[in-house]
Amino acid sequence: MDMKISNDEPFIKISNLVKNYDNGTIKALNGINLEIARGDFISIIGPSGSGKSTLLNMLGALDNPNSGTIQIDGINLEKNQDLSEFRSKKVGFVFQLHNLIPNLTVFENVQIPLIGTGVSENEIEKKAKNLLESVGLKNKLNQKPTKLSGGERQRVAIARALVNNPSIILADEPTGSLDSKTGDVILDMLKKIHDENNVTLIVVTHEPYIANMADRTIKIRDGEIIEDCLNN
C-alpha cells in the first residue's frame, strides 16, 4: 500500500472522480474534485440518486471509480489493490439500516472489525465493552440485535464503527430509519465522538437541519458538486 505522508497534503483529496453504472448509461459521479482537512465534520446533502452515497462508498474504499483518484491520509485508493486493510485500519462505517449480524450478540457484533487483525482477544473484549458502555448499552451486551430498538441498534453500529480507532467515520443517513428524537441522540453521539477524538466525520443526509450541524456542507446533484459552504 502506498504510504506517502506529507503534511502539506489535505487529509482527503479527490480529483476528477467519475463513476458510471450500467456501462456508462448512468453517471453517478461526474468529475468530483474535493479536499477535506483532518478532523473536519462534513455533511454531504442532495436528493436521492444524486450520487452522495456513491461518493461515500468511494471514500470508504467499498467501490472503485471509473476514473480519477482518491487519496486519504496519504494512501492512494487504487483499483485492483486489496483495500480491506485500509478499511480495517482507517474507516468506521455507520449505515442507515445499522447492518448488524442478527445471530451474534451486541457484544460480538462490536468485536467483528478487530477479529483476525492481530489484536488480542482480551483487548478486543475490553475495547468492545468500553465502547458499549460509552454508548449506554452496558447492560445489553448479550442481547441479540433483534431484541433492541432502532436507536439502540444504531448505537451498537456506532460502537462497532469506533472499535478499530478509525481516522474517518463515514455515516450514510445514520438517522434515516429513526424517529427525530432518537435521531438527534445518535447525531449528538457522532458529534461528540468527532469533537473528542479529532475523527474526520462525513455524514450523508438529505435533511438540511442535519447537514447544518456540520462544519461544512457539500451539496451534490446529478453527480456533481453544486455548492460547498462552511456553516456557522
Binding site: V91, N99, N164
Partner: peptide, 16 residues
C-alpha cells in the same frame, strides 16, 4: 449476502 457485505466493509479480507 448483506452480512458478508458488512464484514467486507469493516475490513475483513476476502481470504478470511
Amino acid at each position: 449476502t448483506k452480512e458478508i457485505g458488512v464484514l467486507k466493509a469493516v475490513g475483513w479480507k476476502s481470504k478470511r
